[in-house]
Nucleic acid binder design. Structure first.
Lengths: 194, 194, 194, 194
DNA sequence: TATGAATGAGATTTCATTCAT
DNA sequence: GATGAATGAAATCTCATTCAT
């Protein structure tokens, strides 16, 4: 929550995560050193090692905390019927999850090469594919599968590329969601009137 | 014939670029060391510095060489009328350029955080925005602007995320292009029958 | 008493400064590598970087420590009346300061080109000019100003060139001081009988 | 042959020496790389090696060319009677030699640590001591010997420290010479009236 | 809960030098 | 007279990590 006025006790772990995520998102994972993180927190590097086993562990812990909503979403989705309504709802919830953990997702988007080799790499891949599986039909033609992927990436892009476009972030998110829903709708019911 | 036995003289510069791009795309820019590149070429690190001023310079030179087609495409596009046909043609050509320089674009997609801070960062941003400008109308509603961004990202994704989908790469590329065209078409003529 | 068997903990910083100064004076700044310093101390190079930010920083820290007496001397001098007695006293004290920090001054004398570009360069220049200002009259004829500079350099030389002359160092220092005093005396009172 | 006209061709050797000396004096010997010299001359590093065997050799050759007058001066001095007139004349000629080869002497003054280890190191030491021998009496008291050294250093300083003093260089040189003569005069005839 | 001190590995870069052409 | 290509050695510096206290 509060980013500047932290009471000095008991929440160092959280503060490390906050600062680390901020720096990771700003500069990239490899270009952010533990020294920087420690300095910004006014602790020593060794203190980081009291709370986390490795540098990677810091990132993993952040990911695990912020990723839970998406995980839950997939679990929920798997119990629902594959109707268009369900798919739309999934997109809606996913869009909100993205918005809530924007820095993390921005980081993941911009550091794919890094993240791929880390232990979360597989998890992430699984998650994206799991999400796609919920909104696409396995036997759909290739074009429809592309539409589903595209829907997801559209929402990701909604947080990134659209930085350079004017307008309120929340509105941009909604516009991206709208386009995503449209894409999935077409994929879901190819015979719908165009 | 032989892909491993390189002719030893005269083309070192090119060979450095080739090996570097391969490794950059495979492992990421920061995790690829000059030692690795040199070893794979059976030259000393110092030889790299005879041909390039810095590590960054290697990447920049690769980028400048492979980026030319896209640059040309933008210049061409700026002289054309903003018809739907032009836009479609731009997408088609861009898709082909992407396919031809796949490793570079894959690298750029997966190393955005790195590339952003390099001297090519601004160039790339300019280029993407220049491309988007050719296919979107400046006064179009936000949703249509998203569609245009989405079209571009769909083609990028066509080279990346779709790795995990079965099927021939060329077919996947065409499917991505088709979806992109569709998105731009809708953005171009919002009143078209759906 | 042992000069080679150093107590291993707690005073590393000081030991680095000692060894560094010795090597800097012996071989010059640029020709002394951090590897050498580290090896002579039986520490790793990285340890040096724990205590000092850069190679230059090692030198700067040495300089700042040993320069204090001279700095104090200038401050003291500025509060005194510009009598011949004051000037003589300044020369006397300066001569002693030089003797006490002989290796540093020898280093500075022999590495002027290097020191000039370092961050201490300006400080040193300031200090020498500050010192000269205390012993020369601003409106004195050029010849008298030269005498004052010469007085200072005579004492510097007393530590250097006179190495190749026979005799006890302490006696040489006193002889140099005597000549310096004589020069300043003449500059102070040009009409004095010769 | 004998004439000193310098057309743009065929005098590369001389041009190398000129540029090298300028850079050596400006930045110091170690901090000046052959790359810099070559670039400033618009030739390749390898070209330098056609004309000189090593980097040191460039410096040595410069030194040998410019040092000749001083060498001659010493030889001449050795044939003269050790009168005060001779000594004065030596100082006068030396002062002129210094002025004529100012950059070289400035370089030597500021790079003593470097020069000491080079092959010219011994030569220089010899030369200074040879010069001193001409103006001091071997059995003179220590103070008088200091005066002689001081005379020499005063003239050196005349080219350096006096940079920061106002006034015409030629006048400053003459002032330095005057003080030097005075010092040697006293050393020569201690009983002279003061 | 943390720190102070240190390390081992490795990064990028620079340099003087060589040699076939 | 000079270049193009390359090398071997070394330099400065950074990093993630460890451990006794």
């Amino acid at each position: 929550m509060g980013s500047t006025s932290q009471p000095r006790r008991g929440n160092t772990r959280q503060r490390i995560q906050d600062v680390a995520l901020e720096l990771f998102a700003q500069q990239g994972y490899e270009k952010t050193s533990l020294r920087e993180i420690a300095e910004q927190l006014d602790v020593t590097k060794a203190a980081l090692y009291y709370h986390f086993k490795t540098k990677e562990d810091i990132l993993v812990s952040i990911f695990e905390d912020l990723n839970k909503p998406v995980e839950d979403l997939i679990i929920w989705g798997e119990t629902q019927p594959r109707t268009l309504e369900t798919k739309t709802e999934i997109l809606r919830r996913y869009s909100e999850a993205l918005a809530r953990s924007a820095p993390l997702f921005r980081f993941m988007q911009e550091n794919q090469a890094t993240v791929r080799d880390l232990s979360i790499g597989e998890t992430i891949k699984h998650r994206v594919l799991g999400l796609v599986d919920l909104i696409k039909d396995p036997d759909a033609p290739l074009t429809d599968q592309v539409r589903c992927f595209s829907a997801l990436f559209t929402m990701h892009a909604g947080m990134l590329a659209l930085k350079d476009v004017d307008g309120d972030p929340e509105e941009k998110r909604k516009a991206a969601l709208e386009v995503a829903v449209e894409l999935v709708t077409r994929a879901h019911d190819p015979d719908a009137p165009r």
